[in-house]
Structures are given as structure tokens and as C-alpha cells.
Amino acid sequence: MRLLTGEGFWSPLVWLALAAGVALLAWALRSRGRQDYKRGTEQETPFLSGEPMPEGVHVGGQHMYWGFVEALRPVIDRLRAFHSGVVSDYVTWLVVMLAVVFLVVMLS
């Protein structure tokens, strides 16, 4: 049950067995943790950055990776401009790429 991948192999069933072992270990460690958690008390009050938050607040998907996106802002802005949504731009890129393909094919 091994998939040869050139330099090595991949066996999902062995991986699953190892993952089950790790999960068991994690469960064993967790079961040795604090036992004083109580449902329905203020222990369940949500906090965000140390500040108490009202219930029902959702950190939406658009807020994740804000820093990453900001750091790459110049690249992403160019990519957005590149995806202009204007069909004549699409056709221009098709023509440009056809020229590139022709160049490679004819010169090779």
C-alpha cells in the first residue's frame, strides 16, 4: 500500500496510524489538565485582546491576514488592476501570449 513518488513513497495508512497515536497522546495530556472548569459561569465570557466582548461578535473572514495583505499591498493592487474585468484587456493578454507562444515555438 505504498505510492512511489520518485525519491520516496507515501503510505496514507501508516500516516493515519501515526496521527491516531499523536491524537491519543494529546488526549492523555489534556486529561491531566485543570479540572475546575465550570460551564455557565463567567469562565465562558468571551475576551478579545484582553477586553471583554459582547456575545455574538464574529471576526469575519475578511479580517484574517490583514497584516499579510497590507505587507503585499503594492503587489496585490497591481494584480487587482491586472484583473480589470474589461474584456478588451482579456483579449489583449490573449494576443500578447499568442505572440510569446509563437516566438518560443518558432525559435525553438
Binding site: L94, M97, L98, V101, F102, V105, M106
Partner: peptide
Amino acid sequence: DRMALGLLVG
């Protein structure tokens, strides 16, 4: 042949 290949690939 190569012209046709360029068109097909494109």
C-alpha cells in the same frame, strides 16, 4: 507544423 502548434498551444 510549428505555426499550427503555436496556434493550438495558444
